[in-house]
Design a protein around this nucleic acid. Sequence first.
DNA 1: CAGTAGCGCAACCTTTGGTTGCGTGAATGA
DNA 2: TCATTCACGCAACCAAAGGTTGCGCTACTG
Lengths: 115, 115
Amino acid sequence: MSTTIDDDLWSAVGDPTRRRMLDLLLADGGGTATTLSEQLPVTRQAVAKHLGVLDRVGLVHVTPAGRERRYEVDETQLARAVAQLSAVGATWDARLQRIKRIAERIQREKEADRS
Amino acid sequence: MSTTIDDDLWSAVGDPTRRRMLDLLLADGGGTATTLSEQLPVTRQAVAKHLGVLDRVGLVHVTPAGRERRYEVDETQLARAVAQLSAVGATWDARLQRIKRIAERIQREKEADRS
DNA sequence: CAGTAGCGCAACCTTTGGTTGCGTGAATGA
DNA sequence: TCATTCACGCAACCAAAGGTTGCGCTACTG
């Protein structure tokens, strides 16, 4: 059983800078490469590249407005990504709990042997 | 408000190969660089590097046994990482409850699809 | 003791996140 | 109208990370 996750989507959300960008876009209700770079420790060009990545996986959506290019979060897509994050967490959680139960059962059997 | 996450731990779990390695280690109850590489599309050396990363952030624990080096998952640490994964989702959820509702709806629809 | 299995080290390649530098087109103000 | 300025795209370049091959060492095994 694999985790069945879209690795492109995951790795898009996996980058710390891109997470902060999504954060900012959500907080401000959108923004441009320039406005984002002002609130981040990286250059506008770096931000632009990240926006390209986010755009390609459909997490953001761009609308040219005069000489600006305004980006907004596609909330449905982000919701899908968040859902997949939780799904991975749930998978490991389930497996950890299963292992724990097995360990406890073995422990009980050992104690039964001794008596 | 940042996501307040340990980026080292996140990026350790963020790599697809390392996620599959953790998966395999949990499934088999431990393993070596060689046994893992047999079940993965990468070489033993690549696996060894990843094990180094996982070891450095404390997600796995190694015990030399003869000419082997057996690795096992530190379940407590992994549980912490999983909790942080959920925390990221929770942060975004808290800011936009709308997104959370959409995510849950998608989740329900997926489950409905499976039945 | 000869052979093999598991591993570590080192050199190298490619991708990716990041930078600087430069050119271009859309607002803006005299 | 025209010079300026602001937002952007493109290109070259750099460093870190994931991945590979090649080599040598050491601990088991026949």
